[in-house]
Design a protein around this nucleic acid. Sequence first.
DNA 1: TCGAACTGAGCAATCGATTACACAGAACAT
DNA 2: ATGTTCTGTGTAATCGATTGCTCAGTTCGA
Lengths: 331, 331
Amino acid sequence: MVKLVDVAREAGTSVATVSRALNNNERVDPALAERVRAAAAKLGYRPNFVARNLRRQSTKLWLLIISDIEIAFFTSVARGVEDTALKHGYAVVLCNADEDDHKEARYVDLAVAEQAAGVIISPHSDHTHIERLIDAGIPVVLIDRGLDEPVDSVTADSRGGAQAATEHLLQQGWERPACITGPQSAQTAVQRRLGYEDALKSASIKTRRVVHRPFTIEGGRTATAGLLDRNRPPDSLFVANAALTLGVLQELQTRGLRPGTDIGLVCFDDAPWAPFIDPPISVVSQPAYRMGTQAAGLLVERISGGRDAPPRRIVLGTDLIVRSSSLHPAR
Amino acid sequence: MVKLVDVAREAGTSVATVSRALNNNERVDPALAERVRAAAAKLGYRPNFVARNLRRQSTKLWLLIISDIEIAFFTSVARGVEDTALKHGYAVVLCNADEDDHKEARYVDLAVAEQAAGVIISPHSDHTHIERLIDAGIPVVLIDRGLDEPVDSVTADSRGGAQAATEHLLQQGWERPACITGPQSAQTAVQRRLGYEDALKSASIKTRRVVHRPFTIEGGRTATAGLLDRNRPPDSLFVANAALTLGVLQELQTRGLRPGTDIGLVCFDDAPWAPFIDPPISVVSQPAYRMGTQAAGLLVERISGGRDAPPRRIVLGTDLIVRSSSLHPAR
DNA sequence: TCGAACTGAGCAATCGATTACACAGAACAT
DNA sequence: ATGTTCTGTGTAATCGATTGCTCAGTTCGA
């Protein structure tokens, strides 16, 4: 590897001058600077970030720790974060915590040890590890899931969206809805459940029919099976995420039940395939990409601006997209 | 931040001893080592990786550079890589090159600058930047897409899978297939096209009907529109990836054409939603997770074992999964 | 008993880039 | 002509952990 001292030798000057010339020409003779640049190019010099970071005690690297990379929502978020980061000269790397507390902790430690410039994280549960980041003075922005901590956050209005979705089912004429949501530990799962219950309350429906499961296809399948095997099974479902939805569809298919005909269905989180399912799925859509850009924006401000400005919580609205799966056959 | 010297002071010894005690006790008095560990724990010491990496000239970090994070195939690969990496003590971060040469170059530079222990990459095109990695002595494993370079690689048998898919269409009784594939620059796109053409050749069909597009929903849509607007439109489609497939479905829906009834359809790459589309999509499935674990295995061997062992190319088989979209109504 | 071999621990060099400080020479003021 | 300021460059300290080298003290064999 060619290093600063090699460039200095080639250009016939000192390492200090080379460093200055290559960085921002702060008072370096233009002719010399040009010679240095030429020498660096000739030798193919690439700065060693490890050394630079050690000296500067800072990096241009963000960690984006997401709770499950297989959820399409997060990949859109990631793209939003990345596009914004790039504009501000930061590189973003993704870490997949996989809904696993232990893995999340590992990545948080990585952020500290590598002295990341900032972290955007969708915390797995309330019992999270962001304290370590705060202790280490690393700016943090929460995404998708908020916490009680005084930290910047960007979330979608899960509760409102869930309520709207459930009200839509009721308006359609479905009478016995159920809710399939994620684990109790996930704030989004709880919020979506609460929104569902808000709608039931307004409609004076007493039976709750709520099932918590991991946010997975398998979770959706078993939850659906359990609900349909009850004595008084639900006639419609509000499902809290796209992975769960695939499991629901699988179980419905097995039983020969057709959404929109035999059972009403609305899901949280729009997926690119939702319009092509048989029948097309009605969904609550979240502005995933925009959540990413907003979170990145907050992080940039937090890093460069005031570190002790009061935390900001951005809540973005959701849209109900009615397709066919939620329509009642009688109407 | 508490550092080694603080721990040394607390434990009443020198930094050298603390370092040794905290690493692998190589000849440190057990009692002293215990005192050191206690001091470290009390002070909450976390090693500074930046400094460690600089000194050791090596890290425990892998970069996984994938060409598009929104493709579900890659997220499965990522999980495979990660699970294996973890077992061997490496941390993996994902970088999304987004089918963009420039972004890919940025991440390759990041790998060099951060002195990554290894890189797994699905190169955007032949004109790739892995030479820089090789020059820097960083072990590389290619995934999904191979190159002419003498580098380890793990790929799926795209050509064979495409051929099998196309032969299946022909056997079903479809007579005028077309192929919608990715950009010429992507090796997988070309291989799948070639497999398609192999099948046509065996069946003595002369008309090729091949369209190249970016691997996106929009690409699938416009390709389908273009094909159907021809004088003699195809009666069936072989589509080279899941994103393209969504675009195809969109256009077919617009025109009121139903796969398996009005037009035959087989797609490369199984997606979790494929069974639930109307009608369920026949696909060629790739062992994505296993590709990830295999690639990680190669990288581990390359790092620890011989750096100059001859490169290995692993090609994994694919499975044709017949659902309904490819069936001919006459049969 | 004496020297060789070994053990455990500390000193100081090292990784590569940045930057505080020093300093020579030019430009300028008096 | 002499002192002051400014410019551009070089020397050396620094970031924090690792590790080669050194050395005091101990063990062991002859």
